[in-house]
Each structure stands twice: as C-alpha cells, then as structure tokens.
C-alpha cells in the first residue's frame, strides 16, 4: 500500500483535497491497483507489487498530488437522513447537557454534517459538525448489542450504526434507512465527502419508510 499523508487535522478543505486526489487516482484506472481509499487526511493505494512497479506508481501518484488544477467533485445537494428520536439514552444526554429532550433533537437535527470518511464497519460514516453543546461521554459499560440504524452520540461525535454490533454510544434515535444493504445493487447509502442532515420523523413515518425497504431518501438541492 502506498499512502499520501496530508496535515493530520480534521479539516474540510484537507478532506476535500483528499477526496479529489482519490477520485483522480480512481479515474486513472491504473493496472494492478486493487483499491484506492481515503480517511480524514490520507489517500491509500492498494496495489499488487507483482503487477505494478512501485516506483512508477509512486511517480504517478506524485504527479497527481502536484496537479495544478485539482478536479474537485463535490457531491451536489444534501443527503437527508430521517431519524425517530426515541433512543434509550436521549434523556441521559438531555440531563448531561442540562437541556430538554426537544432541545437535544433540535440541536442534533439543525446542523449540516460532513462525512469525512467511512470505516470501522461496513458503511459507518465518520461525521463532523456536531453542535458541541450536546457532547456526552460514552456509556461506562458498552451494550453488547445495538440495532442497525441506531443513531448515537459518543463524546464530541455523532454516528449511525450500519450493522448490529456492540458499542458504548449514547443512543438518541434510529433511522429506518439502511446504511449497509448487501442485497442492494448499491450496498452503501453514504460516501465520504457527502453532506448530511438529520430530519426528525414520527413512528408512522418510520414504519412507512421501513416498509419501502429503507432505501428511499430525499435529497435537497
């Protein structure tokens, strides 16, 4: 694997440049490359050393890094993620922050979040942009089983569990959308670089979206 490291910071501009570099490398369709991935601040190229010469590949990557006209491809619009705010820990979060449950919902849903990267488990988005007034420490004892679709807060971050897993996040709600659905032609709902907003919904709406397969979501321009 060859990696390009940008400044080690969580920063929108750095992350945009990272994703633009990743996209340019993917578009080159270089033989012998298995995957190109990105994180907050890095781009990594997985390659087979028997199929592609490391030096040549490094030169190609360097050329792309120095490319004068960065080909920024911003995701247009906003991904709306409907959330039923009925999580087991939403009162705990409200108490911790000294505000009402309604205000937790307000502050969580009145923000635009950037997806810096996907990692940790299939389709898991690393969001940035949470209102820091609702930051809440993780649970002291993690739960053994958290349902897919659960929306939580852990310290200064918010996230969604795409698959059932153990975890110590404060659960504030759940989305009927499937972030990871291996049976779908597009198995991942989200991608790095996208902007996201949470929309509060009621039980009826939750059920309605669930019944349509959890794959319909609105986009605002």
């Amino acid at each position: 694997m060859l990696s390009v490291y940008f400044d080690e910071r969580i920063d929108d501009t750095i992350n945009s440049n990272v994703i633009a570099l990743k996209n340019r490398l993917i578009q080159m369709k270089i033989n012998g490359i298995d995957a190109v991935t990105s994180t907050y601040h890095t781009v990594s190229v997985y390659y087979d050393g028997l199929q592609v010469d490391r030096e040549i590949l490094m030169k190609m990557i360097k050329d792309q890094c120095e490319s004068e006209s960065p080909n920024h491809e911003f995701e247009s619009g906003l991904v709306i993620i409907p959330v039923l705010y009925d999580g087991e820990d939403i009162k705990r979060v409200a108490n911790h922050c000294g505000i009402s449950v309604e205000e937790v919902v307000n502050r969580h849903s009145n923000a635009v979040y950037r997806i810096y990267m996907l990692g940790f488990s299939p389709g898991f988005p690393y969001f940035g942009g949470m209102n820091q007034s609702i930051a809440t420490p993780r649970l002291k004892t993690p739960r053994l089983k958290i349902e897919a679709g659960s929306v939580g807060i852990a310290d200064r971050q918010t996230g969604i569990y795409p698959i059932e897993s153990p975890g110590g996040w404060n659960l504030i709600g759940r989305t009927p959308l499937k972030l990871f659905d291996p049976t779908n032609q597009c198995p991942f709902l989200l991608a790095s670089g996208q902007m996201v907003r949470f929309m509060p919904i009621d039980h009826k709406e939750f059920t309605r979206i669930s019944e349509t397969g959890g794959r319909t979501y609105a986009r605002e321009n």
Partner: peptide, 9 residues
C-alpha cells in the same frame, strides 16, 4: 474483497 475497503468493509 477490495471493493468495500473505502466503505469500511
């Protein structure tokens, strides 16, 4: 499986 490396798989 390389196709999901950028998506957490």
């Amino acid at each position: 499986r390389y196709g999901g490396l950028d998506y957490g798989v």
